[in-house]
Design a protein around this nucleic acid. Structure first.
Lengths: 128, 128
DNA sequence: CGGCATCCCGTCGGATACTG
DNA sequence: CAGTATCCGACGGGATGCCG
């Protein structure tokens, strides 16, 4: 019995002071979206993720994974071999976020053409 | 009718050079999420949105709406009265994004407690 | 009312070098 | 392999002032 279920209705991301706005800010992030999507295929090593999220710096990858771990979305597992092996996997909480992150990435890929067309239209008309 | 359906399969946000990564970055944004959610209830005036997205600066609100307009997600309508009246509404393309943006905001509000608990656990263990 | 222009500071995030 | 540490430039984003 941690917290009563209906307390959650009190959260409202429209309000600046509400902690959910900060959470919304965290998960509304390019690297978070790509990392969660990548981990959907199962646990991955640090180097796997590094290759998958092409051009991400170690700094951003580590920082992203640490934040996800702290927020309980990702589980970090260290195997003390030589050299060290570190695996990252989605937690149940993280798997709950997966459908949403997948939907965002899919939307971007599927509507890229329309957005590109809209930009061209906007920029062309602006010349007048 | 507009574009062939199978061209879209070429886009892949995992690739750094792919334009979808930039699009993913744009829509993965706190203010975009809140603005689209707010516009779900129908067209809104600039001042309405300003009040709804509590504490957003004019700069960020204008910048967010301009980007959304350029990307074809939002329609800007100016009524040349005195003083001027400006309304913003979702376009069909923007309405397509709405379910996703709504899902993100909802996820944040519904899982805030679990994330908060995870953070406390992480920070407590780290002291050792 | 609905902006735009400017100043300015803090954070994001890349590059590089070093370590267990 | 999987990081940590540091430096530093770019950009996000708030505050303020002006305008049609």
């Amino acid at each position: 019995m941690a917290t009563p279920p209906d307390v959650r209705a009190a959260y409202d991301a429209y309000l600046a002071e509400c902690p959910t706005r900060q959470l919304l800010d965290r998960i509304s992030n390019k690297w978070v979206g790509l990392a969660v999507n990548a981990l959907a295929e199962g646990p991955q090593r640090y180097s796997d993720l590094s290759r998958r999220l092409a051009s991400i710096s170690q700094k951003m990858l580590t920082q992203t994974l640490r934040t996800l771990e702290r927020d309980g979305l990702v589980q970090r597992t260290v195997t003390p071999s030589v050299p060290v092996r570190v695996d990252y996997a989605l937690t149940p909480l993280g798997r709950g976020l997966l459908p949403v992150m997948r939907a965002i990435k899919d939307w971007a890929e599927q509507n890229m053409d329309d957005v590109l067309a809209a930009r061209t239209r906007y920029d062309t008309d602006a010349v007048n």
